[in-house]
Amino acid sequence: MGVTGKYFFSPGQIVTEQYPENRKTLKMAERFKGEVIMPHDENNQHRCTGCGICELNCPNGSIEIISTRIETPEGKKVRIIDKHIYHLSMCTFCGLCIKTCPSDSLAWGQEFEHAVFDRSKLTKVLNQPGSSIIKGIE
């Protein structure tokens, strides 16, 4: 009774996270695994070469890469991605895609409010429309 009494009379120790109210101040840990994202720079450029290693390493098949082969002006045949499709609904957040990516094009996003009304909204295209690869990444 002493313990409960002590806590009753010292309300300063309340530990409840008042979640929807503290949204503005809520800060997740910097390594928080919210979702997989592909960071783009200010020129709408990403680092993904479309090699498909993340697709191979994903245990659940939550990544699909649709890529096309094009010929560069120098005459080299290069693969570029059309779409980097990410099924959030199948992801188990193991982090293997991010760890194995040779060009560090993927990262963890901080977003965690994933609830949607339609399942198809959980399928995301990670590269933004019209984006291109940063020069110099093989």
Binding site: G5, Y7, F8, P11, I14, V15, T16, Q18
Partner: peptide
């Protein structure tokens, strides 16, 4: 409320 305070919670709010 009483049990919430004893359990370091806020209770109904």
């Amino acid at each position: 409320k009483v049990c919430a305070f004893m359990q370091n919670r806020v209770g109904p709010n």
